[in-house]
Design a protein around this nucleic acid. Structure first.
Lengths: 217, 217, 217, 217
DNA sequence: AATGAATGAGCCTTCATTCAT
DNA sequence: GATGAATGAAGGCTCATTCAT
């Protein structure tokens, strides 16, 4: 009674549910998250989830979908980095994109947490995301790295070089909780994403500029 | 299998339960893991968990404890790296220790998974582990990195340099599932841990040898 | 029987549950009473208890509440006994009210049993009942007894006189099981409540009319 | 280890178990009482109960037995009241015995609680106790009351007169919790058992001395 | 004689899901 | 279109009891 949910069109309700589900799934994980908590936050009834979505699972899937949409944009933006830029600039752009993507403080925290969870146990939607967004990104990054080297290197070595770059970036997202504890007095990574991107770029450029192929076996 | 419970001392049973719990917790996470599945694998009754441990939670805690014991050994081993070794050798030793720790193929897979989960949402036991094992390791690594540089750098910069080294190592553990999908044809990281450690060492040494302080502002 | 759940509004279901719970709690006590037995009698599923009430405990509390509601009416009725009636008549009215309250054969047996249990280990609801219903009753009874005496008596003595009256009444409720065994051939107290009230009134009037203060010390 | 239970003969252990069980059964009731709590208090292992007694039930029965033994003594003591004493003195003695029995402060509290519980739901042992101890007591009390009256009264009336006497006594035991709440500032009944016995005797004597048979119909 | 180890039975509770309205 | 009412399934936990030692 007096449950005035103004402009509660079906779409609006679905959006509220996804938003709320994102928070709850991020906080508790899929299993521990309860539909009741989600619908409470979304100001809906428990039956609403099974009405608008078929399942708890289906709701989760759509949350994941929703999370990846932003990622798609981010990574596609890398496709727009002009190919005629100097390789150093291109590396800088790629690193900056990745760092700002995983640390973007304008994004609600739960998106990053969902993404981290998904990367550990990829669902179908995430596998698609890997293929459609991450793989092209990695391919292009490989090109950039190869351009920065004096001579061609075999694929395996190129992959590892790229991994070294990406690993530095992802670390701040994956090990967030560890870093908070190890360095409680340092600024939160999300607040200095620019500085970190700059640091990683310089570290990687330094390494690549001095790179020598390993002596075999 | 192994339904022989003849020499079932209390300790033996507890060990079996922890072992089984490790697998199940790693596979499903704390919530989804059921005591029944654990006790089935350990060939015990569900009540056994509440007898030997008081709780499902207490069982999980002891699993975490058990996991960290190995980690303690690994990281303490780094304390034994002779301090009079050349800095390059020391870096190599530290990287090798970390990589082999997170990828150690002789360890059951679930230990790594539990550790990853714990690092995302550290329990009390993990917080202790961070303080007692990881922090000393990081401190020493900072010294090594500083030694490799021509001149002293401020703490924040030193921290980020260390992060760049560690990030490369952890990446192979954290993004295991992603890497499997991106490079289905490449050897599993765990099988070439030595090569990876070598690569990361060389990449980091190259970067540090060319390192220049960032221009301020 | 009565498996017709057609007009099953929420209130109706709650009522059925409370009714059934009353019987079962009375018969077995809180601990031994099982939700299953309650819901079986109420023709509901075990989960219904946690839906309509949150707890087994909450259900019990509401049963107690329900029991006391009748008591409230009874004792409040004593407030309506005209104060200008002769004291003998007022005593008779008070005794009759109390006896009929504790023995009321129109009430299901379980109400009395619950009340007895509660009086032995009062819950919060029962403490409220004591304050709101019993204490005013006792106060008024004290006045009546004082009026029946030739001269004022100290509070402690007055209290004991009132206790002597009340004790006679309650005995038939508290020692029901004992009386059944001692006097198997006598009519059940509940069936001769009027006679008992009359007897107790006459016994008490006789005592009070001859009452002399005790010799001190 | 170092579990020095000096002089722990079998009998001694049984006694400790019964003592502990009495406390726990009194506090929690049969169902809620756990063997673990009992054996903890008795400094024994949980298996000891099933070893020394066969059952939880059997343990409870022996506790009841133990409780009634004291009652037997008390009530049998009434048989020793000289029959040639004046009826008033005999009444006084009977009331004093009953009051001191139910309020005896030298007895652990739990005996009274167990007894109260048992009177509400008599077990086999209690039924025996009723027959062997209470019935003779009531018989004798009936004789005393008859002696105090000017003329013979029918059995039913005699019974009710006796009930009026007994009811006053038992009230202080049964309604202990109620009295504590109604009169928080008055002395505990157990501490003034003598005064109460005196009061009840005088009240009853006053009533009986003025007693007139009810007008029939 | 006494107990540590282990368990089966049963209970309360939670939760996703269904369905009549 | 949306929900209050209700439930089946399953899980964690407690506890009296058993048994080998």
């Amino acid at each position: 009674m007096a449950n005035v949910k103004n402009n509660s069109s079906a779409k609006e309700t679905k959006r509220r549910l996804i938003e709320a589900a994102g928070e709850v799934f991020a906080q508790h994980g899929f299993e521990r998250a309860t539909i009741k908590e989600i619908t409470d936050r979304a100001d809906a009834s428990v039956a609403a989830v099974n009405y608008h979505f078929s399942d708890k699972q289906e709701l989760y899937d759509q949350v994941v979908q929703y999370v990846h949409e932003r990622g798609d944009e981010t990574f596609k933006a890398c496709g727009d980095v002009p190919t005629d830029l100097p390789p150093k600039e291109r590396l800088k752009a790629f690193v900056a994109q990745l760092v700002s993507h995983v640390l973007d403080p304008s994004q609600p925290t739960w998106r990053c947490q969902i993404k981290t969870r998904e990367m550990q146990h990829p669902s179908a939607a995430t596998e698609r995301f890997i293929e459609q967004s991450i793989r092209p990104y990695v391919r292009q990054l490989e090109e950039v790295v190869q351009d920065l080297l004096e001579q061609p290197v075999p694929q395996l070595e190129l992959t590892r070089l790229v991994n070294s770059v990406i690993g530095q970036c992802i670390y701040y997202a994956h090990s967030r909780e560890l870093l908070v504890r190890l360095y409680p007095d340092q600024p939160s990574p999300a607040d200095v994403a620019d500085e970190l991107a700059d640091h990683i770029t310089r570290f990687s450029l330094a390494a690549l500029s001095c790179w020598r192929a390993p002596a075999k076996g």
